[in-house]
Design a protein around this nucleic acid. Sequence first.
DNA 1: TCACTATATCAGC
DNA 2: GCTGATATAGTGA
Length: 105
Amino acid sequence: MSKFDELVWNKMRRIPRGRVTTYKQLANAINTRAYRAVGNACKRNPYSPEVPCHRVVKSDGRIGGFGGEMSGQRVMKKISMLKREGVHVKDGKVVEFNKKLFKFR
DNA sequence: TCACTATATCAGC
DNA sequence: GCTGATATAGTGA
């Protein structure tokens, strides 16, 4: 756990329900280019739904690549949660991703 | 200090 | 337009 993690989680928590963001936006909000470090901190989040890492996707609108798309079963759980919030995921991609993309300000 | 990583971007084809 | 390789930042060992 480091300051960076807290910062990332702090930003991530700002994501409203039914909205998603990208690692790029997160990194931009933190003023860094460590896109991977952001995702790295996310997967290590010791918190519960307070840090919705499942609301963070790639710039393509695709869900992050965990242990490969084949192991997307755990991601499927997140997708289910996202769908419940109004964010539908089709073929591993967020529907209307461009509209649901939440930009940090 | 070295290597790996839940990405992004640029270049090449 | 798609695929491959490179750049960047941070963590863990």
